[in-house]
């Protein structure tokens, strides 16, 4: 168990030194995952809301598929994106493989189902409460979707946080499409995987501690936004 004590010491040392390589890796991790969450929000929030409000044939199937995709294995998602972006693939001409952009795309694919599925659930509950009132007021369908998204905003934050948690912790997709290239596509999780395989368990564990602390910090920051926790359960 010496590993753990030593790992905490190493972690503190790394943070206190503000090791430039560490800062670079942490910054890229945050940049990639936050961008992916933003992209997922742009797609998943409206898509989930439409799915909650509009009745169409096959809707139940889409919901089942969406819920299943929440558990999509990152490695599989990474592999599919890899094939799409590789030289021979349909999107090969853009030369995105092994760039941070590819990592954002892969994480967006992982996070969007989570955001959409949780949005669908939240908005469907809200819709059943608001539906008659909004129709009584003469609110049009598209307008009512924006109303529901706005009024559900505090609960929807929780969905985005869940998405961020998935993105920042995920290693399988980014290591395949990013390639873990030093100074280019190396993020926290891929570094931990690398250091573990090299046998630097102490350094890997220290990085893990920093990663978990970061996740806690981001969650705390969002939850401390005015009223998020208090109002999510309205």
């Amino acid at each position: 168990m010496d590993n753990f004590g030593a790992a905490f010491e190493t972690a503190f040392a790394l943070i206190l030194q503000l090791d430039s390589e560490l800062v670079e890796i942490v910054a890229l991790s945050l940049q990639v995952s936050l961008l992916a969450v933003a992209c997922s929000a742009l797609i998943g929030l409206p898509a989930g809301a439409v799915l909650a409000v509009v009745r169409f044939p096959g809707r139940q199937g889409v919901i089942v598929l969406l819920n299943a995709l929440m558990g999509l294995p990152p490695v599989v998602a990474g592999l599919v994106i890899y094939l799409l972006l590789s030289r021979a693939g349909p999107l090969g001409e853009y030369g995105l493989l092994f760039t941070p952009t590819a990592m954002v795309i892969a994480q967006t694919v992982l996070v969007t189902p989570i955001v959409a599925a949780l949005t669908r659930q939240t908005i469907e509950d809200l819709h059943s409460e608001y539906d008659e009132q909004l129709r009584s007021l003469g609110v049009r369908r598209t307008q009512s979707i924006w109303t529901l998204l706005w009024d559900g905003r505090y609960s929807l934050f929780t969905g985005l946080l869940a998405g961020f948690g998935r993105a920042i912790a995920e290693v399988g997709a980014v290591i395949i499409v990013g390639g873990n290239i030093n100074h280019v596509t190396r993020v926290m999780t891929t570094t931990i995987a690398l250091e573990t395989s090299k046998g630097n368990l102490e350094l890997a564990l220290a990085l893990g501690i920093i990663l978990i602390s970061l996740a806690i910090l981001v969650n705390a920051a969002v939850m401390s936004l005015r009223g998020v926790t208090a109002r999510a359960n309205w």
Binding site: E129, E132, Q133, S136, T147, D151, Y154, R231, W234
Partner: peptide, 10 residues
Amino acid sequence: MVFQQPVLLR
């Protein structure tokens, strides 16, 4: 229309 259980926006 005003409903028995008022539906107020958040």
